[in-house]
Computed example of a mutant assay.
Amino acid sequence: MANSRFYYRDPQAPEPNQPMGLGVIAIIEQNGSLLVEKRTDSDRWALIGGAIEPNETLLEALHREVKEETGLTVSSASLFGTFSDPSRLIAFPSGRVKRIVTLAYQVEVEPFTELIVSEESLELRFVPLADLLELPLAETHHPIVHALLDQRGHVSPSGVTLW
């Protein structure tokens, strides 16, 4: 099965051939770790989120995506950042290629006892912030993760700021 491919600042990336996509991402943290999913369409790790449907608001999409992908219910959300670098692209197995603009939200969820893995995911996991860059992340999520780590003041083992 062909996989979706993600691109960020890659000169070898294909040219978009579809209208730009708009999506939301949920930054869900617990005890210094971030919730990520291993995607079925690419075997890559990614933050929780997805596309905004034509009939919903940004926050409705955020609530829906979190519920669909994790079983969790959003109790509050605040805008973390807008990620609109034109080099953020997704190439689908069908040949469609689109540029994506993503609004990332810091999200609080209602208390929970277990995560529910959706059909879109192979696995859900809380990963310590310091270990995020060791995962094979979807390239389109790199700027979001870098911004989060930068905001949290994470440094490399040598004591140098990561970005």
Rank of each mutant, 00 (worst) to 15 (best):
A2P: 14
N3A: 12
S4L: 02
F6Q: 03
F6D: 08
Y7T: 06
R9A: 07
Q12F: 07
A13I: 08
P14N: 10
E15D: 11
P16H: 10
N17F: 03
P19I: 02
P19L: 08
M20D: 12
G21D: 10
V24Q: 05
V24I: 09
I25H: 02
I28R: 05
I28Y: 03
G32S: 09
G32K: 03
G32Y: 02
L34R: 08
L35T: 10
V36P: 00
R39M: 13
T40L: 02
S42T: 09
S42F: 02
D43A: 13
D43N: 15
W45I: 05
A46F: 00
A46R: 08
I48T: 07
G50W: 02
G50N: 06
A51Q: 15
I52C: 12
E53F: 09
T57L: 04
L58N: 09
L59K: 12
E60Q: 15
E60A: 13
A61E: 05
L62K: 05
V66W: 01
V66N: 04
K67G: 00
K67M: 09
K67Y: 10
T70E: 05
G71R: 05
L72C: 06
L72H: 07
S76F: 02
A77M: 05
A77N: 07
S78C: 04
F80D: 09
G81W: 04
G81I: 02
T82R: 14
F83Y: 12
S84W: 00
P86I: 04
P86Q: 08
R88N: 10
F92W: 11
F92Q: 13
P93S: 10
V97A: 11
K98Y: 13
K98L: 13
R99T: 14
I100C: 08
T102V: 14
T102K: 13
A104E: 02
A104P: 03
V107N: 05
E108H: 12
E108L: 11
V109G: 04
P111S: 11
F112Y: 15
E114P: 00
E114L: 05
L115F: 03
I116N: 12
V117Y: 00
S118P: 04
E119I: 00
E123C: 01
L124F: 02
R125Q: 15
L129A: 05
L129H: 14
A130F: 01
D131V: 00
D131C: 01
L132G: 04
L132H: 04
A138G: 09
A138V: 06
T140K: 07
H142G: 00
H142W: 12
H142E: 11
I144T: 10
V145F: 04
H146T: 13
A147T: 09
A147P: 01
L148Y: 01
L149S: 06
R152K: 15
H154V: 15
S156Y: 10
P157A: 12
P157M: 07
V160C: 04
T161I: 09
T161H: 14
L162H: 12
L162R: 13
W163V: 11
